[in-house]
Amino acid sequence: MPNSLVFIGERPSHMEMQIKGKPDFYDAILLSKKSHHPSSNLSYHSIPLHQSRVTIHIRENNSQFNCYHQSLQLIEGEKKLSEEEAYDIFTNFAIMEDNKVAFLMHSGTKRIKLREKVEPRVLSVCEKQEI
């Protein structure tokens, strides 16, 4: 699958695809191995990127996703897409070039909370002196 747009799902016909999952780190490792052969339980499909432009029409929101000269472009349809909806479209695909795989992933709502800065402790020593 060199130089291709990869997705997880089914291809009922040459012109149609149904996305069933989003690629993750494990998928990137499997796809980057040269000896990878898709098994029946992992349904990776690829769209070759040797053409000058690949256009995918997305039915759910009547928009288009273009892959053109190593860039990705999302063209909105009648309804304006939110940032999350646009990001969700891009996370359905991985881009494979030779044995390198790139994909976007949503980190979720978990954020690393920075620890509050603790004031430095001041130690003092006092000796009891006799008078």
Rank of each mutant, 00 (worst) to 15 (best):
S52R: 14
I56T: 08
E97V: 13
Y44G: 06
E84V: 14
T55N: 05
S43C: 12
I95N: 01
M105E: 14
N92V: 00
C67S: 09
P48T: 09
I56Y: 01
P48Q: 05
D88H: 13
K100H: 12
T55G: 03
P48W: 06
Y68H: 15
K100L: 10
E84C: 11
E84T: 14
R53G: 01
S43I: 09
H50F: 12
F93W: 04
E97T: 13
G108P: 02
P48A: 11
F93H: 00
C67Q: 08
R53E: 14
E76N: 06
N61E: 07
S39V: 11
A86G: 14
Q51L: 09
K80I: 08
L72V: 06
D98A: 09
R59S: 06
H106I: 05
S40F: 11
Q51Y: 10
Q73A: 07
N92E: 12
R59I: 03
E85S: 05
L49A: 03
Y87F: 15
N41T: 14
I58W: 04
I89V: 09
H69A: 15
L49N: 00
Y87L: 14
L104R: 03
Y87I: 13
H50P: 00
I89Y: 00
S46M: 03
Y44H: 04
T91P: 02
Y68T: 14
L49K: 02
H106G: 03
S46F: 09
A86F: 01
E76T: 04
S40L: 13
I95V: 10
V54F: 07
Q70Y: 12
H50K: 10
E76D: 07
E60K: 09
H69V: 12
Y44C: 08
S43A: 12
N66C: 14
H106S: 10
E78A: 08
T91V: 13
F65D: 00
I75C: 07
L104A: 06
G108S: 02
L72E: 04
G108Q: 00
N99D: 11
S40W: 11
E83W: 13
Y68E: 13
Q70E: 15
G77V: 01
D98M: 10
E97H: 10
M96V: 11
L74A: 02
I75A: 03
K79F: 03
V54S: 07
S40T: 11
R53P: 02
L104T: 05
H45I: 01
S46G: 08
P38T: 05
I56L: 12
S46V: 04
K100Y: 11
T91L: 06
K80S: 13
S46Y: 08
I58A: 02
I58S: 01
G108C: 00
S71E: 13
F103G: 01
H57Q: 07
K79M: 01
S39C: 05
V54L: 14
Y68F: 15
P48M: 04
P38A: 12
F103P: 06
V54P: 06
K100T: 10
F65Y: 07
F103E: 01
R53S: 10
